[in-house]
Structure formats: structure tokens, C-alpha cells
Design a protein around this nucleic acid. Structure first.
Length: 491
RNA sequence: CGGGGCGUAGCUCAGCCUGGUAGAGCGCCGGCUUUGGGAGCCGGGGGCCGGAGGUUCGAAUCCUCUCGCCCCGACCA
């Protein structure tokens, strides 16, 4: 009781967080905790929101020069755009712009998992070694696994994956087949002590991953679940503006019978893949994933040839003739059906309808969330910088005030900024006074927001601003009202 | 883990071969002038030259060890 009280006192220490926040946000009338602030000064939150998304205030440390040690373009651009900062080989801090993109991707993944009937959990980062001894993987996994000891010298590990843990959860709580099927997922940081981290966040040691685990009574049920997840993956990547091609894949150390990798074609990809030219035009979003039988969808989408190097079948590929393409690919998702590989040794069994106890049929389904940030940039950039697909862009629109301090420019830009925010459009306003137009344009192109509104002295004299579409570079002059209407319409 | 490369100012780098006590550009701070694609001039601050040991009158520079980072290969969401 006493001890707890003392630790609370620490949080209220008078020289604590408050002074630091004053640099960034309007002074909050902080009394005994942030929760009380709103009651005393209801306008605080709105003012804070209005202040933060201005570049004069926003924490965006962009770089003009390419930092040494970043070889792939996505890594270079992420560093230059102030999204991340490297801390150690394969370990990064995520700065505000990067964190926003990560959250956008996470949100899409979460929505599609929920839509597919999965339930979100959050498993502990640290796992006891004993759990892994049960499945036999503690010895097998090798030095990629970060092994640690607690103060009692108990062996622990920092989770590289969570099959054992989820199987443990399942066996604690599920007894009968009536509770099946179930798919549990989490979006959690993982650590794998890679021999050689590289490609920035695409192959880090610490990475954010969505991992789902399915539990079914029998093989037929497990196959249905696998198909449902397969379709959910097509939709998930399509929503991010990506064409992720499902390819037959090896099961690797996770083991099992069936597996597909979802691959994005990119010159900087880590592995060689082979597929039919038709995949380049594939449109997964067109599918009505909820209506159609998943088995039929999977059948249709796996009919066209696509294979990783390991699974490549030259004989079958030869039949494609000119339609065969060989490219490099980035793996952004991987799904496995592995049956009873973990449930049998770990004794995760359910009562079947006939009264017998059977080990549950399992599968696992990964999406590399942090890797996707890099992968999307690999797939979508130009010489000036990143070109974000709209669904994952950190902001929808950037306002460039070319002549801050000019009365008309300021009022037009401020008005646009306020009204876009009121309309719920995510907007970043470059209101910096110390930067010249060239630097502002360069920064805005670099961070790759889909739309730019350029407010300059020449334009506002004639009552117009310039709307620029980042992807094509097209610009068009129009009144602020027209620009507003364009930017607020649903995309 | 094998092979190769690099650690010098906040960032990008020169200086190292041929030892003589540290430089440039950009950024940062102050001032003036500027304002439609990373401005100009003037002034200023900033570096135990990754770390330890050794050779030498003297080491960023030569030698040994060590730590870190990057690239190629084998492995991985």
C-alpha cells in the first residue's frame, strides 16, 4: 500500500513532464493528471491539435543528403523523410511521420482480420523457455532467438514468434469442439537476432508483425480457415495499393503441409520469384470477398503460375513461354497450415463429437507490418521521394505556404488548414517562416503526401491556389473553395 | 558464420600512403539582404579523429587488440 502510493507520487513530481510539453503544445492547465485538464479547459485539445500539424511545430527531421550506410531506396527515403532513426544494426526508433504510417498499415490489417472473423489478443513479449522446450523448438531455433535470464536466473526469451504461447493459451481455456473454429491474432513486436540485418526496416531484428493462429477440429475445417485467411490477405494488401502475389512456398522451420507467401515484385527484393505476366494486372480489390465461397476464390487465384525460387517448377513454367517473368520479390505475408505440429506435443486437445480427444488442427498467418512500410516505398517512389498510396499516407494533404508572413497567403492557408481539419481530412501545414519555397517543395515531395496545396503570393492575388497531385506531378490552379471541395470528397 | 569495406563536427566527406598537433560543404547560432523548386553576404559556436595498448621527441596518420556500422554469400515476416 505504502509502496504503491510512493510510486504515484513520482508521477506528479513538480519538475516532471509539464515543462517539456510546453515547448510543443499550448500550455495545458495540468493539475493532478491529464484527464482533469479537459474539464478545466475544454479548448485545450483543439488548440493542441491545431498547433501540432504545423511544420513549425511538427517533429520532422528531414535530411537533404543521403545518410551513409543506407543502400536500398526505401531505407534512404525513410531516413531522409525523418520517419525513422537507426539505433543499432536492424533496430530503429520510429519518429512521428514513420509512426503514423505504421499505424495506418496496422489499422488496415486489423480491419481485415476482424472482417475475416479473427479476434485480437496481445501476448507477452517475453516468454518462458520451458514453453519452447515442450515443442522441441528451444534447441532447434538457433541463435536467432534472443535468450535472456531474469533476476532469478530463470531462462526466458524475447519472442521471435508465438506458436507455443498461443497453443498454451488455447489448452488452458478450450475444452470442446463446439468452441471451434477460432482464429486469434495480435499485432506485436518481435525480435529475431538475424545474422545479417539489412534493407532498413524490411529486414530488421526488431519488427512489428501481425500474427494469427487458427484452431479447427479437423483438416476440412482448417482448410476452410486457411482459405478465408488467404482471401483476407489479398484484400489487405490490395487496400494498401499493393499487388501482393500469392505463391506456393516452403514451410520452413514452422513446419507443416501447406503454405503461401505473398510477394511484392520489386527490384530490391530479397529473393527471385517466377510468375505469369497476368499477375501484373491482377486486381484483388475487385473481388467481393465476403460473398463468394473462399475455396473457389483461392482456386481461381492459385491457378495462374506463381512460385518462389524454392518451389519453382521449370517444366510447368516452360509452358508459359513468353508469359513467364522472372523478377525479385519482397515477402510481406506468409500463411501456413501445419496441423498438429504444436498441438500434439503440447497436448492441446479438444473433445470431439464422438467423445474422443483429438489434437487441434492449427495454422498460422503472418504479415510483416513494419516491413510493409519499406516495401510500399520500394513499390512507390520517384526521384524526388516517396509517393504514398492514399490509404497509408501519413497525411492526406500538405499545405505549402510559400510566403509565410504575407497577410493574404497566411489567411488563405490558415483558412484551408482549419477547414480541412474540421472536415476530418488529415493535413500537414508547412507554415515555416525560415524556409524558402524551394526547401518547402523539396520536403513536401520527399515525404510524399498524395496532395499538395500551394498557396503563393502570385496565386492569391488572383484568388487561386495550386493543387498538385504528387503521383503524377500534375498541377492545377483553382479557387481555395474548389480545392477544398476536391480534397474533402471521399476517396 | 565465411569474404570485403568503413569509423574524423549534427549530416556528407577530405586529410592517413609519405607522422609535426584538424579541414571543406551542408546544417546550427547572430546580423543584413532575400522569397514560386533545397538563397546570398558578414560574423560565430562546434571534434579525448570509435575505444585501449604499443612504436616515436611527436600519432587522426604506423603496429596490435577491441567495439561498432555497412556490403557480398549461406538463413529468414
Amino acid at each position: 500500500m505504502l509502496r504503491r502510493r510512493r510510486s504515484l507520487e513520482r508521477w506528479r513530481h513538480p519538475t516532471g513532464v509539464r515543462e517539456n510539453m510546453g515547448n510543443v503544445l499550448p500550455a495545458a492547465p495540468l493539475a493532478t493528471g491529464a484527464g482533469f485538464a479537459y474539464g478545466r479547459d475544454p479548448g485545450w485539445f483543439e488548440r493542441a491539435k491545431g498547433a501540432v500539424m504545423r511544420l513549425s511545430n511538427y517533429f520532422l527531421p528531414t535530411l537533404k543528403e543521403t545518410p551513409a550506410g543506407a543502400d536500398v531506396v526505401s531505407h534512404q527515403l525513410m531516413l531522409r523523410a525523418g520517419m525513422i532513426e537507426q539505433i543499432s544494426s536492424g533496430i530503429y526508433n520510429w519518429l512521428p511521420l514513420g509512426a503514423r504510417v505504421l499505424r495506418k498499415i496496422e489499422a488496415i490489417v486489423r480491419e481485415e482480420q476482424d472482417r475475416a472473423g479473427c479476434q485480437e489478443v496481445l501476448l507477452s513479449l517475453i516468454q518462458p523457455a520451458d514453453l519452447w522446450r515442450e515443442s522441441g523448438r528451444y534447441e532447434d531455433y538457433g541463435r536467432e532467438m534472443l535468450r535472456i535470464q531474469d533476476r532469478h536466473e530463470r531462462e526466458m526469451l524475447f519472442g521471435p514468434t508465438n506458436e507455443e504461447q498461443i497453443t498454451d493459451v488455447f489448452r488452458h481455456h478450450v475444452r470442446g469442439y463446439r468452441e471451434l473454429p477460432k482464429v486469434l491474432y495480435q499485432i506485436q513486436w518481435k525480435f529475431r537476432d538475424e545474422v545479417r540485418p539489412r534493407f532498413g526496416v524490411m529486414r530488421g531484428r526488431e519488427f512489428l508483425m501481425k500474427d494469427a493462429y487458427s484452431f479447427d477440429l479437423d483438416k476440412e475445417g482448417a482448410q476452410r480457415t486457411y482459405n478465408r485467411m488467404f482471401v483476407a490477405y489479398l484484400r489487405t494488401f490490395a487496400r494498401m495499393g499493393l499487388t501482393a502475389i500469392p505463391m506456393r512456398a516452403e514451410t520452413g522451420p514452422i513446419g507443416g503441409d501447406q503454405s503461401h507467401e505473398f510477394i511484392i515484385l520489386a527490384d530490391t527484393g530479397e529473393s527471385v520469384v517466377y510468375c505469369h505476366r497476368d499477375w501484373l494486372e491482377a486486381d484483388f480489390l475487385a473481388e467481393d470477398a465476403d460473398a463468394e465461397d473462399p475455396a473457389a476464390l483461392v482456386e481461381r487465384w492459385t491457378r495462374t503460375y506463381a512460385a518462389t525460387e524454392d518451389m519453382h517448377d521449370p517444366a510447368r513454367a516452360d509452358e508459359l513461354g513468353d508469359a513467364l517473368i522472372e523478377r525479385r520479390g519482397i515477402e510481406v505475408g506468409h500463411i501456413f497450415y501445419f496441423g498438429t505440429k504444436y498441438s500434439a506435443p503440447m497436448n492441446a486437445r479438444v473433445n470431439a463429437p464422438d467423445g474422443s480427444k483429438v489434437p487441434v488442427e492449427m495454422g498460422s498467418y503472418g504479415i510483416g507490418v513494419s516491413r510493409l512500410v519499406g516495401a510500399i516505398i520500394e513499390a512507390s517512389h520517384d526521384d524526388s521521394g516517396i509517393v504514398w498510396p492514399e490509404p497509408v499516407a501519413p497525411f492526406h494533404v500538405g499545405i505549402v505556404n510559400i510566403k509565410t508572413g504575407d497577410e493574404t497567403c497566411d489567411s488563405v492557408a490558415e483558412d484551408l488548414y482549419r477547414r480541412l481539419q474540421e472536415a476530418g481530412v488529415e493535413v500537414l501545414y508547412d507554415d515555416r517562416t525560415e524556409e524558402r519555397p524551394g526547401a518547402k517543395f523539396a520536403d513536401m515531395d520527399l515525404i510524399g503526401l498524395p496532395w499538395q496545396v500551394v498557396v503563393g503570393p502570385k496565386g492569391v492575388q488572383n484568388g487561386v491556389v495550386e493543387l498538385k497531385y504528387r503521383r503524377t506531378g500534375e498541377r492545377e490552379e483553382m479557387t481555395p473553395e474548389t480545392a477544398l471541395a476536391r480534397l474533402c470528397r471521399p476517396c
